[in-house]
Computed example of a mutant assay.
Amino acid sequence: MVELSTVAIALLVSVDLGYFIKVAICTIGSRFFWSRISPLHPSSFYGICTVRDVDFLLNHINNARYLRAMDFGRVDHFVRTGLYRSMKSYSATFLVAASTIRYRKPVYLFMPYKLQSQIVYWDDKSIYYRQDFFTIHDNFLRTTAYVKMAVVGCSPEKIISAVSDTPLPTPPQASSDLLLWIQYNAENSDSLKKLQ
């Protein structure tokens, strides 16, 4: 019995076991219990700010926890839209290549929130998500982010087309702030290449 508890404590300390358990629960729930959605429609994932999420002030979500919650939102979206299955069928991989986040108001301790995740654009190499945190009691947009998901091993268009309602979907029109962020990423990438 002591050996089992030692192994359990070692796992909790060395591996963030809670994260992997939550990913498994999110994947199973998205696959079997929540309705399937079109790849261009938003998915909603619900959460609550707990004591494991707060920063050193002990009253609102830590900045890094937003990014972590966004992982769960994208997992939910990947599974419910069929993008995960499509990605695997083409032996492709999605990798977070960049993200930008804007905090408007904090999500305080024990405050429930809704995370909305939606594909807002894609190009020949990447898929772009917008992810928004709304507090449930007032439906206020607390935090908003863009995430660039690099698609390795296949084109984004091919993966999206495989699960889309239309044969060859066109990317949605990108907003001006998203285009500026894409341009920033491209220029930043070019400047980093010059350093090598």
Rank of each mutant, 00 (worst) to 15 (best):
V2N: 12
V2A: 10
L4P: 00
L4I: 03
T6A: 12
T6Y: 08
T6V: 09
A8I: 15
I9Q: 12
I9D: 13
A10L: 15
S14Y: 06
L17M: 10
L17G: 06
F20D: 09
I21T: 14
K22V: 14
A24H: 01
A24M: 12
A24F: 07
A24L: 12
I28F: 03
F33N: 08
F33M: 11
S35M: 06
R36H: 01
S38A: 10
S38L: 07
L40C: 05
L40D: 05
H41P: 00
F45Q: 15
F45H: 15
Y46P: 04
G47N: 09
G47V: 09
T50L: 14
V51F: 03
V51Y: 07
V51Q: 08
R52A: 14
D53N: 15
V54P: 03
F56S: 14
L57Q: 14
H60C: 08
N63G: 11
L67I: 15
R68K: 15
A69N: 13
M70E: 15
F72I: 12
G73L: 11
R74M: 14
V75T: 15
V75D: 07
H77G: 04
V79G: 04
V79L: 05
V79R: 07
R80C: 04
R80T: 15
G82A: 08
G82L: 12
L83M: 15
L83F: 05
Y84F: 13
M87H: 07
K88Y: 01
K88G: 00
S89W: 05
Y90S: 04
S91W: 10
S91H: 11
T93F: 01
T93S: 02
T93N: 03
F94A: 13
L95M: 10
L95S: 08
A98N: 12
S99L: 07
S99Q: 13
T100H: 01
I101A: 05
R102V: 04
Y103A: 02
Y103K: 03
R104G: 01
K105I: 01
P106H: 05
L109M: 10
M111T: 10
P112W: 00
Q116A: 08
S117F: 02
V120C: 06
V120A: 03
V120E: 06
Y121I: 04
W122H: 13
D123N: 14
Y128D: 07
Y129W: 11
R130I: 09
T135L: 11
T135H: 04
F140G: 02
L141A: 11
R142E: 14
T144S: 15
T144V: 10
A145D: 10
A145T: 11
Y146R: 12
Y146T: 07
Y146E: 13
M149Q: 11
V151N: 09
V151K: 08
G153V: 09
P156I: 01
P156L: 02
E157I: 00
K158A: 11
S161E: 01
V163N: 04
S164H: 01
D165Y: 02
P171D: 02
P171G: 00
P171C: 01
P172I: 05
Q173W: 00
Q173Y: 00
Q173H: 03
A174K: 10
S175L: 05
L178M: 01
L178C: 00
L180T: 01
W181C: 03
I182K: 13
Q183Y: 06
N185T: 07
A186S: 07
E187D: 10
N188C: 08
S189Y: 11
D190T: 00
S191L: 15
K193E: 14
K193Y: 13
L195N: 06
